[in-house]
Amino acid sequence: MTSAALPRPYDIAHLTHVRRRHYGRWLAAALILVAFGFLAKAFAEGQIAWTVVGQFFTAPAILQGLWGAVWMTFCAMALGIALGVLFAVMAMSPNPVLKAVATFYIWFFRGTPLLLQLLIWFNLALVFPRLGIPGLFEARTVDVMTPFMAALLGLGVGQGAYTAEVVRSGILSVDLGQTEAAKAIGMTRLTTLRRIVLPQAMRVIIPPVGNEVISMVKLTSVASVIGYAEILRNAQTIYYANARVIELLIVAAIWYLIVVTVLQIGQYFLERHFSKGRGERRAKTVVALEPQGA
């Protein structure tokens, strides 16, 4: 049946559909671009010696600080994730003592500022002048508690408290039927956790932990207060000498952005890996098959 054969007003099926023009969107985009142009112009003409930025961008002290930040991020996150898994499992344990210890840990380290924790670790020698296990080894606390150790403990132990909550929610997201099926084929509780529950919990755990890794990159700058040599600390050391404050801060900012960008790309691939068997890839194909445009 052709539409022309139909009586009015139903005889219009052959007419062309015309999309809305969205003039408002064009106007908003134009305004924002103009504002950005002014901003770029201001920075280009401002009191910034861009040649100094370029000159110090790959200075040995800056690169050494970059390594310090990346290495600290890695170590502190490794410690944080290990503690996070441990305390998440403890928090879900039927043993009331383990549960209470985990609850206390999460409460204490989430409840105090990171800067304060760093200062406590660094000044631990004031409380315990000597550390060690009697008969095995012993050392002066000031020798053990280097800026690296204090920063690692401050950042890593504090991170563990947050990661514990993330891991716990990940484990809770896995259907109880998975645990029962694992039991039914003779798995012990530990094997079930390692082979069945955690791999599936990863899908829920990775995005927030990725977020925390990115936070950690920037939190390492807090360790500059206890003298740990990372990007910001080393940039400051340089500008105390040459007074190029903004230039060196820009160098540090660019490096942070580069590291974070690389990590974001890594997170994308990690998420894709752990979404195996969840149909994400299939969902993408379906989207691609939908007709494009009008």
């Binding site: 259907d175 998975q178 029962e180 099926a181 694992a182 039914a184 084929i185 003779g186 012990t188 195996k276």
Partner: peptide, 19 residues
């Protein structure tokens, strides 16, 4: 866990390992 090896179990909701 060792005793459970004697019996195989099939669940109403399958409970296949999703990953």
């Amino acid at each position: 866990a060792r005793q459970r090896l004697a019996s195989g179990m099939v669940f109403q909701r399958f409970n296949l390992f999703q990953h």
